[in-house]
Design a protein around this nucleic acid. Structure first.
Length: 292
DNA sequence: CACTTGACCTGTCCGC
DNA sequence: TGCGGACAGGTCAAGT
């Protein structure tokens, strides 16, 4: 799914569009996508007004005037697409969009607002979910108690990153970076990109990394995430932002999906291997595996 | 206990 | 063209 930059791009879009809007109707096309009682949800949502749109890790939450928040995880193929009343729902979308007329056959939930606009929750693979949580629980951080720090929090120094990563000193660094309880928000694309930028092999054990490498890794993660947010995220297959538009980061990726192409640093061919059960892209020359 | 693998789903791509 | 298998942005529970 969308990783941190994609979820953040969607959040930025929705934060511009939704606050102040009153929910008029809630339609559930695939009940399993709602991890909450449908009857309760309809009762709670009707007439409530959106107050803010926030993100923690890869989780979005739309806060409402009734003291509840809509909490959304897009997993692998989730989309949140907004359409104004002026937009003809059946006409399809202008160019550079992957989304046509809505709802379509991947639409699981549709939220209609009083002003005639709509928010569509699409999810081809049906792994994503939406639920209602009392906003107080989110503010207390109860809901997020098992999540690690936000990588873009300016207070996260390389010392803190080191301490977090050394909680699993013997797993592969890739598996540890993917672990949301260690650091929240990275996924397969940005772990590969960050490790290439910091010249660390994904199978390296955190216990073998030098302080210099932790520093380089900390800087690389921030650089990669910020670049991707500035490009509107990565559209690998079906990710789109809140307006249904694709992201452009994939054109700037150095290793992800670049197998067979030359490394931009040393010219060696990028290869694809398997680490932590995931397709993993590396430069076999730049990223040297440290062993004890 | 720490760590890895399968399951959840649908769609696409690639080789035979 | 058709079919089988591998694979895809994530995260759990169930295995070793």
């Amino acid at each position: 799914m969308p990783e941190l930059p994609e979820v953040e791009t969607i959040r930025l879009g929705l934060a511009d569009l939704l606050p102040g809007k009153e929910i008029a109707k809630f339609s559930l096309f695939w009940p399993k996508s709602l991890h909450f009682s449908p009857e309760e949800a309809i009762k709670l949502l009707k007439g409530s007004v959106v107050t803010s749109v926030d993100r923690r890790a890869k989780v979005l939450f739309i806060s409402l005037s009734n003291g509840y928040s809509l909490v959304i995880h897009l997993k692998m193929t989730g989309q949140l697409v907004y359409r104004s009343k002026e937009f003809n729902f059946a006409a399809g979308h202008p160019t550079k969009s992957l989304v046509g007329s809505l709802p379509d056959n991947s639409t699981r939930i549709e939220i209609s607002f009083k002003d005639g606009s709509k928010l569509f929750f699409n999810d081809q693979r049906k792994f994503g979910w939406m639920k209602l949580i009392k906003s107080q629980e989110l503010n207390n951080d109860l809901f997020f108690k098992n999540y690690g720090p936000e990588p873009l929090d300016p207070d996260i120094t390389s010392q803190i990153l080191k301490k977090q990563l050394l909680r699993s000193p013997n797993r592969s660094i890739k598996a540890v970076l993917l672990d949301q309880s260690i650091l929240a928000g990275l996924g397969n694309i940005y772990v590969d990109e960050s490790l290439w930028l910091s010249k660390i092999h994904p199978l390296t054990k955190p216990s073998l990394l030098s302080d210099d490498q932790f520093k380089k890794l900390a800087r690389s993660i921030v650089e990669v995430l910020k670049l991707s947010i500035s490009k509107g995220g990565s559209t690998n297959r079906n990710y789109v932002n809140a307006n249904g538009e694709v992201g452009k980061y994939i054109d700037f990726a150095k290793v992800y999906k670049k197998e067979g192409l030359p490394c931009s640093r040393c010219g060696t061919k990028i290869i694809k291997i398997r680490v932590a059960g995931r397709g993993t892209h590396i430069c076999p020359k730049c990223q040297i595996l440290l062993v004890e």
